[in-house]
């Protein structure tokens, strides 16, 4: 070290840096206190909105498997569908998909998080024209992107976004598997 090391030369910077850290941490804790509830509420709201999108008839949802499987009920308490949340690795990052299934048939698919996908390409998987292709497909046999396979159930990939389309399809298949395991076999 070029400069002289005296107790004062070490203590003063250390203490002032420590104080700054302390104040910053306190300020953050305070802000967190104020905003945490609102943030959690926002997240719940967007998840609920997504569940409602795939299961439009449901009035309320019961959580069967935490964060994964929800049972949608109408006003009379009858089951009108299951909403299943699955996540998968897409092109740029995680893709989160909500799948609605009723009586072994897919009634709706919602891509509720794909912000890491490329705008204009992978992000288009959340467009209705792509998502609506899943409606009416059966949950008991796998779905593929039509580019990969011509047998069985297929959906057409979004132009130039095969990877993201495949990711969504995989997530829907995963949801179907969870449905078969948790709901169908439990009946």
């Amino acid at each position: 070290m070029r400069f002289k090391i005296t107790p004062k030369a070490i203590l003063i910077p250390t203490i002032s840096l420590f104080l700054i850290c302390l104040v910053v941490t306190a300020a953050l804790a305070l802000t967190n206190n104020v905003t945490a509830e609102k943030i959690a509420y926002n997240e719940l709201l967007s998840k609920n909105q997504s569940m409602k999108n795939v299961c439009p008839e449901a009035q309320s949802f019961d959580e069967l498997v935490p964060d994964v499987l929800y049972e949608g009920k109408n006003e009379g308490g009858e089951t009108v569908g299951y909403a299943i949340s699955t996540a998968i690795q897409g092109y740029g990052g995680q893709v989160k998909v909500m799948t609605g299934i009723m009586d072994g048939e897919i009634i709706g698919v919602d891509v509720f998080y794909n912000d890491d996908e490329t705008p204009g390409l992978g992000k288009n998987t959340s467009n209705e024209s792509f998502r609506d292709q899943y409606k009416g497909l059966k949950a008991d046999s796998p779905i593929a992107v039509s580019k990969d396979s011509s047998d069985g159930q297929t959906v057409d990939a979004v132009t130039s976004a095969t990877i993201s389309s495949r990711a969504v399809t995989k997530a829907v298949n995963e949801a179907c598997r969870i449905y078969t395991e948790q709901v169908k076999e439990g009946e």
Binding site: I12, P13, S16, V24, T31, V34, K38, N42
Partner: peptide, 28 residues
């Protein structure tokens, strides 16, 4: 008040603090 020697770390801490505050506010 900030000693010259720890100027940069102090600035970074202050900036990071404000960034986190803004991030939380935006999230909420």
């Amino acid at each position: 008040v900030i000693p010259d020697k720890v100027r940069i770390p102090a600035y970074i801490t202050i900036i990071a603090g404000f960034v986190s505050v803004v991030q939380m506010l935006v999230k909420a």
